[in-house]
Amino acid sequence: MTTASSIAGTELGTESMQVLMVALQSELFAVDVGLVREILDPVPVTEVPGERGFLSGIINVRGKVVPVADLRKRFDMEIADTSIDTRFIVTEIDFDGVPTLIAIVADKVLEVTEIPAASMEEAPKIGMHWRPEFIRFIGKWKDDFVVVPNMERIFN
């Protein structure tokens, strides 16, 4: 583990991180709780003609139009039907200095937890089937590895 590396303002090995644990298929992802605004049960999604590949449409969140992103598409994963466990995680991500709400589809929301600083490592340069620039770092949760995505890079 490299402690001198800096990932999106967090020095690896120096600070723990509060995250929302979510499942996309059988993979575990951790979303920085600082980005999460709320978690919603699935609502109807309005499709938008010509949308980007991983943006599946828009939803109404208390009168605001919010784009819906399916990270399974962005990470070239198989798309599953909505289930009783499916949730929309409404996040606020900075786009060119403008805070923007985006709902992310999760197959299941597990819990809010902390990833200890000692378990954070840079994504390996080989052996990953995801683009490394989309991965902020890899952490350990219980006995599993968990991917902490770099949301700003995924959406910009």
Rank of each mutant, 00 (worst) to 15 (best):
T3M: 11
D85E: 13
D94H: 10
G127E: 06
K125W: 05
E15D: 12
T14H: 15
G13P: 06
N150H: 12
G13N: 00
N156G: 15
A23Q: 15
F88R: 00
L28Y: 10
G53E: 11
W141V: 09
P132L: 14
W141H: 11
V65N: 08
R74E: 05
F134I: 04
V19E: 02
A80H: 13
V48Y: 00
G57D: 05
E27Y: 13
G34H: 08
L24P: 02
A80Y: 10
L20H: 01
R131L: 10
G34R: 03
M151F: 12
M128N: 12
H129M: 15
T82D: 09
T10C: 06
P116K: 14
P149V: 05
I154M: 07
K142R: 15
E78D: 08
A23L: 09
Q25G: 14
P132R: 14
P44H: 08
V19F: 04
A69W: 00
R74M: 03
E152N: 10
K140E: 07
T86L: 01
F155V: 00
E47H: 14
V22C: 04
F95W: 14
K73Y: 11
F134P: 01
L110C: 08
I126N: 11
M151P: 00
V147H: 01
A103S: 14
A69M: 06
V43S: 14
P42Y: 01
V33Y: 03
L20V: 02
F145K: 13
Q25R: 13
F134Y: 14
G53W: 08
V61I: 10
E51L: 10
S56E: 07
I154A: 00
K140P: 02
D76F: 11
L110I: 15
T82I: 15
V148I: 13
R37I: 09
V19M: 09
Q18F: 05
S26C: 10
L28S: 15
V65Q: 07
R131I: 10
F95R: 15
T91C: 11
G13A: 00
I115Q: 00
I89D: 02
L110D: 11
G97C: 02
I93A: 00
G9V: 03
V31P: 04
I7H: 07
V146P: 01
N156K: 14
I115Y: 02
I138F: 04
I154G: 00
P116R: 13
D81M: 15
V90L: 02
V31H: 08
V90C: 11
L24A: 03
D85L: 10
R136A: 12
D81Q: 13
A69S: 10
G13W: 02
K108G: 04
F95S: 12
D70W: 05
T100V: 10
P67C: 03
L35K: 08
L40W: 12
F29G: 05
G127H: 02
D96S: 11
A23Y: 11
L28H: 08
I115W: 01
I104C: 03
G34D: 06
V146S: 02
S119Q: 06
S5Y: 09
D107E: 03
V147E: 02
